[in-house]
């Protein structure tokens, strides 16, 4: 399971227990991903997964690409679709874990980069979404979207009765101007 190409190199040689727990979770994650139009491109040992809207059709993102995307240097997918980045607030524990364990960047350094883009007009920083649940919903509804959540958050909706279908979420054209 760990050789699956959709799992990035961030799955370090972990301790055996962690690895087996992750391995147990993975079928659930990918099962969900086909239903909710979210693709999981990166899963790391702290249980943070990088998710993209399913139309991105990108199964793997390396560290250089992820940093370029979250620092808003890289702005389009290979298909020319604009990249839309969604993040949780700076003080959110999941955001901090994502910065440290996936991007391997101090959260305050990322914030400085975003503020410099914003106040020099050279880029539009990621859109902040308040909760993990909202972030998942927005990424699944927005073409070209990328974000991150905990593995638990992606797994949970599987048990809910009505995972929101893409059609109903992608309707509002405002998210895709």
């Amino acid at each position: 399971m760990l050789s699956n190409p959709t799992i990035s190199k961030y799955v370090k040689p972990l301790n055996a227990l962690k690895a087996s727990i992750l391995a147990l979770f993975l079928p659930i994650l990918f099962c969900y991903s086909t239903h909710a139009d979210v693709l999981i491109t990166t899963l790391n040992d702290n249980g943070i997964v990088v998710i993209t809207n399913s139309d991105v059709k990108k199964s793997e993102l390396d560290l250089g690409s992820l940093r370029a995307i979250f620092a808003v240097r890289k702005k389009s997918w290979e298909s020319k679709l604009p990249i839309k980045v969604f993040v949780l607030p700076d003080n959110n524990v999941i955001h901090q874990l994502f910065c440290k364990s996936v991007l391997k960047v101090y959260p305050y350094v990322l914030r400085e980069q975003w503020d410099r883009l914003l106040f020099s007009g050279t880029g539009i920083p990621p859109t902040i979404v308040n909760t993990e649940k909202d972030l998942l919903a927005i990424v699944s509804a927005t073409p070209g979207a990328i974000g991150y959540v905990t593995a638990d958050a992606v797994a949970t909706p599987l048990n809910s009765k009505n995972p929101q279908p893409k059609s109903s979420l992608s309707e509002p054209a405002t998210s895709n101007k």
Partner: peptide, 18 residues
């Protein structure tokens, strides 16, 4: 005091002002 706006016209064209 400042106000800025950025408009992503297309994936390759962006207009910004402050």
């Amino acid at each position: 005091a400042g106000v800025n706006a950025s408009w992503r016209v297309t994936s390759t064209l962006n207009i910004s002002g402050q």
